[in-house]
């Protein structure tokens, strides 16, 4: 399941071997092997699959229970190197609740000070640049408590972008963004991914389809797919249909606008002869749902 990348790429990326994180008796991560290099990698999985735990471990916010981990070529178990990782990392946590009394500029200034973005002038220039990238420059003096949910999300993204980090870990970054902002976000991440490693955890599969050359699917703390989105889609070929009648209980299907049903799962020979079915080209979402077993669960 592990993709091999060149050793030099790891100074810009992540290497994990047998990564385990437990909460009490529950194994949130169960022996993850992973090499990440430049480019955007999508991280998919159902709620509770371990995506956020993996990102927190990579961001050094959470200590793995077991296994080896190297981030940006540094060892997060060593205090000094962990600090250096945090300084070079761009991390947007899930549901980040920023200090509401900060202005947008104030928050980024605080983060930039901690990330050692040079002297005051250089730091402020970098902050202005980050705010422009997420289209929040005009709101730089607005207090965070007065920003909408989407604006806060963009502000979090701006915080993660400070200093053009070589590793960007984004946990559900497009929640609350309107379509235009999502397109801007995709454009921005694509631009960053030329030189940086981006790990994008999301439930927005169209974002993964649009951005990622590689996708990881987690299930119960394990990587159950690691490859190109096209490979994942290829697995679903021949298992996506459209039909006029409602399929039987236990088959994943949903009603379309024209009253027909999109059906996932049954192979061509599995369906009753009486049902007239039209095979469809699967989407990434179809493939993901089929992979994670949502069809039968």
């Amino acid at each position: 399941m592990t993709t091999t990348t060149s050793p030099t790429a790891l100074t810009n990326g992540v290497r994990a071997r047998g990564l385990v994180r437990t909460y009490g008796t529950r194994r949130a991560l169960d022996g993850i092997d992973l090499d990440l290099g430049p480019g955007v990698t999508g991280l998919l999985g159902r709620n509770g699959a371990g995506k956020t735990t993996l990102l927190r471990c990579l961001a050094t916010d959470l200590e793995p229970t077991d296994g080896g981990l190297s981030v940006l070529g540094l060892d997060p178990e060593r205090s000094i190197e962990r600090t250096e990782i945090r300084r070079r990392l761009g991390y947007l946590p899930q549901n980040s609740s920023f200090y509401p009394h900060f202005t947008a500029f104030g928050l980024l200034d605080y983060m930039a000070v901690l990330k050692e973005q040079g002297g005051r002038r250089q730091r402020h220039e970098e902050i202005r640049r980050a705010l422009r990238r997420v289209d929040l420059y005009d709101r730089r003096h607005t207090r965070i408590r007065r920003l909408s949910g989407g604006m806060r999300q963009r502000l979090g993204l701006a915080a993660a972008l400070l200093g053009d980090p070589r590793l960007l870990l984004l946990d559900e970054p497009t929640i609350g963004l309107d379509p235009e902002q999502r397109i801007r976000f995709r454009d921005l991440v694509s631009e960053l991914a030329v030189h940086s490693t981006v790990l994008l955890s999301t439930h927005q599969i169209e974002d993964v389809a649009a951005l990622c050359r590689r996708v990881l699917v987690l299930d119960r703390g394990r990587v159950i797919f690691d490859g190109a989105p096209t490979d994942l889609i290829a697995r679903a070929r021949g298992r996506v249909w459209e039909q006029a009648s409602r399929p039987p209980e236990g088959v994943t299907a949903w009603r379309l606008a024209d009253g027909r049903y999109r059906v996932l799962g049954p192979e061509e020979g599995d369906a009753p002869d009486t049902v007239e079915r039209v095979p469809l080209e699967p989407s990434l979402e179809d493939a993901y749902l089929l992979l994670t077993g949502s069809v039968t669960r």
Binding site: A59, D61, R87, S97, Y99, L114, A159
Partner: peptide, 13 residues
């Protein structure tokens, strides 16, 4: 700010 709002940000300090 430090106790409640910055814990999850994986800040260098």
């Amino acid at each position: 700010r430090e106790v409640r709002h910055s814990r999850s940000l994986a800040l260098p300090l």
